[in-house]
Measured scan of single mutants.
Amino acid sequence: TFELKGKVGKVVKIAEDHYLVEVEGDKWIAYSDEKLSLGDRVMVVDVDGLKLKVKRIP
């Protein structure tokens, strides 16, 4: 999972307290300090167990 840091993915689902992002064909639970929208491109900035911390990228 640490090899996911720096990888780019996209938001595929928005849940009440987390996001579902697809990175390299796999779906992961993710969270972010900013509000994300469906389809946003994101970069993995940290890995916390099986959850990814992501940030939006242009």
Rank of each mutant, 00 (worst) to 15 (best):
T1V: 15
T1C: 15
T1H: 15
T1G: 15
F2T: 15
F2E: 15
F2S: 15
E3S: 01
E3A: 01
E3D: 03
E3K: 01
E3T: 01
E3V: 02
E3Y: 04
E3M: 02
E3F: 04
L4M: 14
L4V: 12
L4F: 01
L4K: 03
L4P: 15
L4H: 01
L4G: 02
L4Y: 01
K5L: 15
K5D: 14
G6H: 01
G6F: 02
K7D: 02
K7N: 03
K7Q: 05
K7F: 03
K7R: 04
K7L: 03
V8S: 09
V8I: 10
V8F: 05
G9T: 03
G9Y: 01
G9Q: 00
G9F: 02
G9C: 04
K10D: 13
K10Y: 13
K10P: 14
K10T: 13
K10I: 11
K10N: 13
V11K: 00
V11Y: 01
V11D: 00
V11S: 02
V11P: 02
V12N: 11
V12K: 07
V12C: 06
V12W: 14
K13E: 07
K13Y: 10
K13W: 12
K13G: 06
I14Q: 12
I14M: 13
I14S: 10
I14C: 05
A15Y: 11
A15V: 12
A15K: 08
A15R: 07
A15I: 11
A15F: 09
E16A: 10
E16N: 11
E16Y: 10
E16S: 13
E16M: 10
E16T: 12
D17I: 13
D17N: 12
D17W: 13
D17E: 10
D17R: 15
D17H: 08
H18P: 02
H18N: 09
H18E: 08
H18K: 12
H18T: 13
Y19E: 05
Y19Q: 07
Y19S: 11
Y19W: 11
Y19V: 10
Y19T: 13
L20A: 07
L20S: 07
L20K: 07
L20T: 08
L20M: 09
V21W: 02
V21G: 01
V21P: 00
V21I: 12
V21R: 00
V21M: 08
V21K: 00
E22Q: 13
E22K: 05
E22H: 07
E22W: 08
E22V: 06
E22Y: 08
V23S: 01
V23R: 01
V23Q: 01
V23P: 00
V23D: 01
E24L: 04
E24Q: 03
G25Y: 14
G25N: 08
G25S: 10
G25I: 08
D26W: 15
D26S: 14
D26R: 04
D26K: 13
K27A: 06
K27Y: 07
K27N: 05
K27R: 10
K27Q: 09
W28R: 03
W28K: 02
W28C: 02
W28F: 08
I29C: 06
I29D: 06
I29S: 14
I29W: 09
I29A: 15
I29N: 08
A30S: 06
A30I: 01
A30Q: 00
A30K: 00
Y31D: 06
Y31E: 06
Y31G: 09
S32L: 07
S32N: 10
D33I: 14
D33A: 11
D33S: 14
D33L: 09
D33G: 11
D33C: 13
E34A: 07
E34V: 12
E34K: 10
E34Q: 13
E34R: 10
K35L: 07
K35W: 04
K35H: 05
K35C: 06
K35V: 05
L36G: 01
S37D: 07
S37Y: 14
S37W: 13
S37I: 13
S37H: 06
L38C: 07
L38Q: 08
L38I: 12
L38V: 08
L38S: 06
G39E: 13
G39P: 06
G39I: 14
G39D: 14
G39N: 09
G39M: 10
G39V: 13
D40S: 12
D40V: 09
D40T: 09
D40W: 12
D40C: 07
R41C: 10
R41S: 13
R41I: 12
R41H: 14
R41V: 07
R41G: 13
V42I: 13
V42M: 10
V42P: 02
V42C: 07
V42S: 03
M43E: 15
M43W: 03
M43G: 03
M43I: 14
M43N: 04
V44Q: 00
V44Y: 02
V44S: 01
V44P: 01
V44C: 04
V44L: 02
V44R: 00
V45F: 11
V45M: 14
D46L: 03
D46A: 04
D46I: 02
D46T: 03
D46R: 02
V47H: 05
V47E: 04
V47R: 03
V47Y: 05
V47F: 14
V47Q: 07
V47L: 06
V47D: 03
D48Q: 07
D48C: 12
D48M: 12
G49L: 09
G49S: 12
G49W: 11
L50R: 06
L50T: 12
L50P: 04
L50H: 08
K51G: 10
K51Q: 07
K51P: 02
K51S: 08
K51W: 07
L52Q: 01
K53E: 05
K53V: 03
K53N: 11
V54S: 01
V54H: 00
V54Y: 00
V54G: 01
K55S: 13
K55E: 14
K55C: 15
K55H: 11
K55Y: 12
K55M: 15
K55F: 10
R56V: 06
R56F: 08
R56S: 05
R56K: 09
R56G: 06
R56E: 07
I57H: 06
I57K: 06
I57S: 09
I57P: 08
I57Y: 07
I57T: 14
P58F: 12
P58K: 05
P58H: 11
P58V: 05
